[in-house]
């Protein structure tokens, strides 16, 4: 799943090194349109619904964090 998430992220922001960056939000690498694009793609890909309450930097700072969020939401579906 991690590779697929990296593919999704690359399709939205090909200029960002998602495999290695660990502070995507804290360092301002992603703006609000990027975040919403990512959420929309993840919602569609994994049939989940990422809600506003999940909009915390710690959920989007790295691929690992995003993977954890997706797995948590899939498990609660």
């Amino acid at each position: 799943m991690q590779n697929r998430i990296i593919e999704i992220l690359d399709s939205i922001r090909p200029d960002v090194d998602f495999a290695n960056e660990k502070k995507l939000i804290d360092d301002g690498l992603l703006d609000s349109f990027d975040i919403v694009s990512i959420i929309s793609e993840l919602n569609d890909e994994y049939n989940i619904s990422i809600r506003v309450t999940e909009l915390k930097p710690e959920n989007f700072n790295s691929v690992e964090a995003i993977l954890n969020l997706v797995e948590k939401l899939k498990a609660s579906n």
Binding site: S32, F33, I35, V36, I39, S40, N43, I50, R51, V52, L55
Partner: peptide, 8 residues
């Protein structure tokens, strides 16, 4: 980001 996330 919060508004957009709510909307979609």
């Amino acid at each position: 980001t919060s508004v957009f996330t709510f909307t979609i």
